[in-house]
Design a protein around this nucleic acid. Structure first.
Lengths: 204, 204, 204, 204
DNA sequence: TATGAATGAGCATTCATTCAT
DNA sequence: AATGAATGAATGCTCATTCAT
């Protein structure tokens, strides 16, 4: 590839990035196991050896993508969080920040869903990712201390709230949602009601 | 196989069932793609040809297990539902019924988690499974009509409520939950608050 | 299969014949190697075991069909041969007899073509079939003795004459021949000129 | 592979050629269906993957060999043809050219016989090969126009003449022919008499 | 850094055949 | 005679990875 005749990939995109981009695409659309290295080679326009120059193995590509995803998800949590707001406003910021990240990066979202529920990433690596959620943990603990939120296991709370974001993103990306804005509000308030204390409708 | 010399598998278990049982085990514990047919052969104590006598392909085993799971999950919804009870009691029955099914059948639960987020089952087959949730849809619609539940897309409601059950089952099976009974109550009430109307803490 | 409810195969056709008929069909149309026993089972409406009750192996079915073919071809030679006719009339009878047999039984013809040029039938069995051509050998030898036919190796003569019949049958069955009657005459006279002595156009 | 340590195959023979050579050998001697890829691997001294690096499938090896054969047969037709000779001399050149090609390349000849009468090559690919025979078609048409040859379908003429070459080559390679030179002359003149017009011995 | 031919263990599947009923 | 579940060696092929250039 001459520098005088840059091809379609050469404009500021390194081979490493080409490989990651195409891998993400293929993993998300076809599934990880249905994406052989040879296909990544063919699609990303590099040679077999070049992939193995940048990544030790297929597993390492998966892990690189996973870590990148977790980092960006962490950012989505972090950036959308605004101090000096009401708990509700903070909650909404986080919820929307993550949801919008998923809609903005549907490939990364789908890839993460696959990886989370498969055996591609070992528990250890999954644990590492937890640090990105610190913002949520801090937010939720503060709410609990103030008596605004129910007393609940932090991890469980994260899963319950995050699960709702994922569910709506999933349904929306599958085009099963008609009125998106309305359902965003519903899903969000579902979680908000879930975590906040109410006096009346407690049972037992 | 004579009735006088039954082998270790012969007590009322057909070869077909042996194959399905062992496949479920291996899929759940090692992952589907990490389970070659040769391993199923070795573990289930049948010959290669016997597997292909009963199932057209590995894919067909996966689909058979998926359909079986969906059917049983449908039963878990159905059997735990008791008419002539308060909405809350009905809700709790369903929630607990499904949750208990997951704890009773952790292999099926794990297998379903894998399959749901992979490309092994096509959309069409996934749609078929929806019929099993009719009990929930009926229940939720009744609650909406009576003004007890929030107005929300039925599928979204199912996902939001079911997502909580899955989250807790997941954390529990990974031994991340200390006080199970307490967290069951919390997760359940998270969902109950989520779906029920409250007067005070609505935002906007 | 009850005697009160004979199925479509039972009218005077034994299972053995069903198997042979369907095998011939499948071998001719798909090729021998592309016809697994399981397909013969499915198409002939018998059980696997039944085939192996009547035939020791797939090879034995092929050989049974081959021998049947050779016998019928022998008959085609024999029956079409009429003594007390001119050499040309005898030649024409044989040529046409064989050609008509091929058109009457295209499946047997195609099967024989496959088998002749493959390794399914060993040389020994092929030799056995030669006895059926005795009629031709006798006819040709008589013609040579009378000085009507050229002095030529008998086997070669058979191949040369028979080859023309096969060529035309092949082209006709592939629908490459427009005017069949004309081309029959041409192909036949090609062979007749070939085997008969002429004074003029010998070279050297 | 260093030039200082060439292995036993490296003298100007690419892996691709090794594979084709050995495949031809095995196909011709054992039959195509009796030649598993594993045997080609073992005999050609390459790895399984290497075969599939050069050929998409076993079918593609067969097709490559078939096309190579057809091309060389075309050359045999073409090169042996000499303009400015009598029709008989042209005929003899072609006949002998093809016959000698078959004797020179018995493996290719046997392979072609197998393939021609099996289902390995589809009609379309067989049609493509016809272009190689143009020399014969031109020669024969010229002879017809000059009134030297009988009026006969070109394809049929090709088959009738070529069939004789094949018959003799076959018998010779099976060592059924004693005096080869004599029988070459006989078979050739059989065809020559067949295609040339004679005044006397026409019937009807 | 980059290339792509070469590798070979491993995979899903086929298929002729056996055998208990 | 007939059945069809069961067998397992063998097949064509895949695919992550290595290595010489």
């Amino acid at each position: 590839m001459s520098i005088f005749a840059p091809n379609e990939y050469s404009v500021g995109v390194t081979k490493r990035e080409q490989i990651l981009n195409k891998s993400l695409h293929l993993f998300a659309e076809r599934g990880i196991q249905a994406t052989p290295m040879s296909l990544i080679v063919a699609e990303s326009g590099v040679a077999t050896g070049t992939i193995y120059h940048h990544f030790k193995s297929k597993q390492e590509i998966i892990e690189a993508l996973y870590l990148e995803f977790k980092k960006e998800l962490g950012k989505a949590f972090h950036h959308s969080f605004k101090q000096d707001q009401s708990f509700y406003q903070q909650f909404e910021s986080i919820w929307r920040g993550v949801f919008e990240f998923y809609l903005r990066e549907p490939l990364k979202f789908r890839f993460s869903q696959q990886v989370t529920h498969s055996h591609y990433i070992d528990e250890e690596l999954k644990q590492e990712g937890l640090s990105h959620y610190q913002v949520f943990f801090d937010f939720f603990e503060a709410g609990m201390k103030k008596g605004e939120f129910v007393q609940i296991d932090l991890h469980l709370a994260l899963e319950l709230v995050h699960g709702g974001v994922v569910s709506l993103a999933n349904l929306h990306l599958k085009e099963k949602i008609n009125n998106l804005e309305l359902n965003i509000k519903e899903a969000m308030q579902f979680a908000w009601r879930g975590i906040t204390k109410t006096k009346s409708d407690q049972h037992e």
